[in-house]
C-alpha cells in the first residue's frame, strides 16, 4: 500500500449533506488521524471550478512580489513565498477555508481559532532540495512537554495543480510532531503525498517536513493558510509585517460567519504615519483606476 493510501492520512472530504452523526464520525476520524500522524490529506476539499480564478490572480504576482510586501523571508530564490490579500478569488471561503479543513481545524484548535496567515508558495523548476524543518517555534524553550500539548497551529497547503513526484511539494515525517526538536527519526523515509488538484494537506505545525526537488520542469503554485489559536503570534521572518492582509472592503463583503477568523488582522493593515497613509491611499486609487480601465 502506498503512503498516499494510508487510511489515517488520507481522509475523504466531509460530505456536507451527510447526517450530523456521520459528520461527527468523519470529524473524529480526521482529528484522530491528524493527532496520530501529524498530518492528513483531504482529497476534493476545494471544488475544481474555484481554482482557475485563483491561478489567474496569482499569475501576475510571481517573482519579486514578496519584495513589494516588504517581507524579509524568501525560503529560496526559486521558491518565493508571497502574501496574498484576502480579496478577489482568495476571499472565497471555499478556497481559504474549505468546509472539511475548517471543521477539522476548529476541532483541533478550538472555536476561537483564527487565520494567521494566507499566502502562496511558488515552486519553480530547479528548486531544492531543502533542509528538513518544522514550521513551529518552540513555545517553552524546547521542553519535552511541547510534543504532548495539542497543536497551536495547523498549516493547510493547497496545491493549485496535480502533484506528482519531482514537483518539489513537501514530504513529511509522519508522527514527528510528537518528537523533540532535533531527535526525530529521519532514517524512516518521509511521506510524499501524491495529490490531485482540489486536495489539501492539513499539517500540525510541529511536523518535520522538507521541501523536495522540483525536477519536473513545471512551476507549481501552492496556496497556504495558517490556522492558529488566537493567542499565537508567530513573528518568525515576518519582521512585524502583517501575515494577513484584509482590506476593509473585502471584509465587509465576506460572509459574517468568517469574520471572527480574520477580523483580528484589520488593525495590522493600518498606519499612523502621514507618508505611509498617503501611500496607502495612492495605492488604492491606482488599483481602482486600473480596475476601471479593465486592467
Amino acid at each position: 500500500m502506498s503512503d498516499a493510501k494510508r487510511p489515517d492520512i488520507v481522509q475523504p472530504a466531509l460530505d456536507p449533506n451527510a447526517t450530523l452523526d456521520a459528520q461527527e464520525a468523519w470529524l473524529a476520524g480526521a482529528a484522530d488521524g491528524l493527532r496520530h500522524n501529524g498530518l492528513v490529506v483531504l482529497p476534493n476539499a476545494i471544488p475544481l471550478p474555484r481554482i482557475p480564478p485563483v491561478l489567474t490572480a496569482l499569475s501576475g504576482r510571481r517573482i519579486g512580489s514578496d519584495d513589494e510586501d516588504g517581507r524579509k523571508f524568501r525560503p529560496a530564490p526559486l521558491r518565493p513565498r508571497v502574501l496574498v490579500p484576502l480579496d478577489g478569488p482568495f476571499a472565497d471561503p471555499a478556497v481559504f477555508a474549505p468546509p472539511s479543513a475548517l471543521a477539522l481545524a476548529r476541532r483541533l484548535l478550538g472555536p476561537e481559532m483564527i487565520i494567521g496567515e494566507i499566502g502562496a508558495m511558488i515552486l519553480q523548476p530547479g528548486d531544492g532540495p531543502h533542509e528538513a524543518r518544522r514550521a513551529a517555534i518552540p513555545l517553552f524553550g524546547g521542553l519535552d512537554v511541547e510534543g504532548d500539548v495539542p497543536p497551536a497551529a495547523l498549516t493547510m497547503l493547497a496545491p493549485l495543480g496535480d502533484v506528482g513526484t519531482g514537483m518539489g511539494f513537501p514530504e513529511y515525517w509522519v508522527g514527528s510532531h510528537r518528537t523533540r526538536r532535533g531527535v526525530a527519526d529521519m532514517t524512516v523515509p518521509p511521506f510524499q503525498p501524491a495529490l490531485e488538484t482540489g486536495s489539501v494537506v492539513m499539517c500540525d505545525w510541529r511536523t518535520l517536513y522538507r521541501a523536495g526537488v522540483n525536477t519536473s520542469g513545471a512551476t507549481l503554485l501552492t496556496l497556504y493558510v495558517s490556522f492558529q489559536r488566537k493567542w499565537l503570534i508567530s513573528l518568525a521572518g515576518s519582521e512585524y509585517q502583517p501575515g494577513l492582509r484584509v482590506p476593509q472592503a473585502s471584509f465587509k463583503r465576506l460572509q459574517e460567519a468568517y469574520h471572527p477568523l480574520v477580523s483580528w488582522a484589520l488593525h495590522q493593515n493600518k498606519t499612523d504615519d502621514v507618508s505611509e497613509f498617503v501611500h496607502l491611499w495612492m495605492g488604492r486609487a491606482v488599483k481602482r483606476l486600473r480596475a476601471a480601465r479593465g486592467g
Binding site: 512585524y240 502583517p242 476593509q248 484589520l266 488593525h267 495590522q268 493593515n269 493600518k270 498606519t271 499612523d272 496607502l280
Partner: peptide, 8 residues
C-alpha cells in the same frame, strides 16, 4: 506599533 494605527 500596529495596534495604534488607523486606516480611514
Amino acid at each position: 506599533l500596529h495596534l495604534n494605527r488607523v486606516e480611514n
